[in-house]
Design a binder for these strands. Structure first.
Lengths: 118, 118
DNA sequence: TGTTTCGTCAACCATGTGGTTGAATATGCC
DNA sequence: GGCATATTCAACCACATGGTTGACGAAACA
């Protein structure tokens, strides 16, 4: 697995792990709390979290005896950027798109656009 | 019961399959031609294509004795939409992308190359 | 017709993955 | 210190995955 995308997409291919990521969207969580809604052992969840962390999708930080998990957006962004090369939009110039986004954000940083409302 | 995203992300997690998708971005291809640049058997590539097709990422159509493979963008779009749920971290926003394309296409419609046009 | 090309199928193998259980390793609390 | 809590480690199991090779069917062509 040399390409980081291998680990990222593999991590995303499991429904338990996608559910964990969705939970972490609400808030950072301790491992035990992440495991609570799932019908599987804590050790299994711990493994899932290790896979997500290895893929760079989450970060884990130990405070006291509790290990907190939080989303790490860069990995998912890398996957998303790769995927933008496909779809009905081809061919596309990603560099130009990035420049476009910068000009957009330059005038809209205070805007209330909710990306989940789409 | 199994989420289609399972198959989509699993299919995308293999570098050979991602390379195949990238090749198909240029043009539709026959199975033998897809296999040509890879250092593995035709049967292995055939399996990869079956996995991509099962995930809905490509479609295969037999004309004569040649089976043509082409991209099927909807599946990847579904994965992209799921990732948009993490949009608070995600700068590659589909709305912005569409706006970007309008500005791009406004001056480049005569560019001509459009492998997905049917 | 027979042969070549295209692609899949079937069997097999090595390794990876997702789960279990039980022991081990912190850390916090009385 | 002694004990409960939080998390991981280690060994194990069933099954999936990615690859191989060889045989096979179907279409084109001499």
């Amino acid at each position: 697995m040399t390409d980081p995308l291998d680990a990222i997409f593999a991590a995303l291919s499991d429904p338990t792990r996608r559910a964990i990521l969705t939970m972490l969207l609400e808030d950072d969580m301790a491992v035990t709390d992440v495991a609570e809604p799932f019908a599987m052992s804590l050790a299994a969840i711990s493994k899932h979290l290790a896979i997500l962390a290895a893929a760079g999708l989450i970060a884990r930080e130990k405070r006291g005896r509790v290990k907190w998990c939080k989303l790490e957006p860069d990995a998912m962004r890398a996957a998303s950027v790769w995927m933008q090369g496909f779809g009905q939009f081809e061919p596309v110039n990603l560099d130009a798109f990035e420049r476009f986004l910068e000009t957009e954000l330059a005038g809209a940083t205070e805007g209330g656009h909710d990306p989940l409302a789409d």
